[in-house]
Design a protein around this nucleic acid. Sequence first.
DNA 1: CTGCATCCGCTTCGATACTG
DNA 2: CAGTATCGAAGCGGATGCAG
Lengths: 220, 220
Amino acid sequence: MKSYRQYCALARALDVVGDRWTLLVVRELAVGPRRYGELLDGLPGIATNLLADRLRSLERGGVVTRAGDRYRLTDRGRALEPVLDELLRWGIPLMVTGRGDDEFRAHWLHGAVRTVLRDVRLERPVVVEVHVPGGGVRVEATADGVRTGDPGAGAPPDATLRGPPDAVLAVLAGFAALDERADVEVAGSLAALRRLLRARGRPGSSATAEAEPAGPPNRA
Amino acid sequence: MKSYRQYCALARALDVVGDRWTLLVVRELAVGPRRYGELLDGLPGIATNLLADRLRSLERGGVVTRAGDRYRLTDRGRALEPVLDELLRWGIPLMVTGRGDDEFRAHWLHGAVRTVLRDVRLERPVVVEVHVPGGGVRVEATADGVRTGDPGAGAPPDATLRGPPDAVLAVLAGFAALDERADVEVAGSLAALRRLLRARGRPGSSATAEAEPAGPPNRA
DNA sequence: CTGCATCCGCTTCGATACTG
DNA sequence: CAGTATCGAAGCGGATGCAG
């Protein structure tokens, strides 16, 4: 990337991670070390030469390191997590328009779920599993906060949510009530699920009550 | 921008603010409403047609609105502040290499100072003013946290820091000790300034103790 | 087969010139 | 002052080639 040549921390950060695709590459590596082919699969739409370019650039920037045939984040790369989280959070309202014909990978759900439930605290713990075609997320909400992981680990969940990605996300993010989405199937304790949902913030979450153009935020 | 067409909150966020220059435009408007010419001056290096493009795109995205000849952020645009803050924070270590021949605007210092002193709490309040050629920042640190503003407002500060941008930033960010930077001039209570500096975190702040390439993070 | 590099049409960027 | 028009250069995206 061409440097902005501005003595500003934001501009210098963007000199490193501001290129097209770059933060999405970091998103993929934030899950864990990945091989080139796995990255390609997790980044539908990227050209193979661009992925190679971005990986080299991130290596130069000290964000990514290569061990054999695996790429992984450095400490400096892991320090980008708060950035990803805030961008993710800001992007959640943009999911209300549904999936359309966008690509989808089950592991992308982890971040969305973590973000949506970020401030949840529950005195009486709840474990909920979210299942979508191709994978899912296990959510453990306690008094200390929410931890996410892969489904199937540990004891059986109190409740299970199953459906297409935009449907389960609509319910989790509060775009729609449970009974408004007939394409979401609930198994186990409905009461436990309701407790989790009641503990989260309101719809758009961050003050999107606007005098401006009202309605869901625009895309592109 | 061409959409990533991924049903992922991060990708959708980047569809709106991922373009080159876009977040820097938001940075400028985060200070307050600005006119076209003021934006051009705050974004050295941008081409005028690109600024016009970005402003239109941000308007479509619901981030910016236009009132007469002023552009300003919508609520949705102001919701980007945590994103800017985290990116800024991540970028601070990249400032250690000094200014070089990068452009500089005094109002960029506000964000850097806020970020560097983000977690500072002081039972006995301190007011410090930082002066650089063309402007400066007033810092009021109390038990509730740090507030920044323009110099000259309110009572005279306890201490004043003056010097070139990279010098005062090095001292504030902890890249260098006060007596290591002869180009930084201190007026007023040295003790008050020291109390403020002691209250802040360590150098790179966020765990940059790395087994990897050591030394300051690379740019570009 | 994986992990890229090369080529090519197209879009975007960046610099300057120009207009209401 | 606030943009639009233009044009060469650089970057992107898709396909294909090729080495280990």
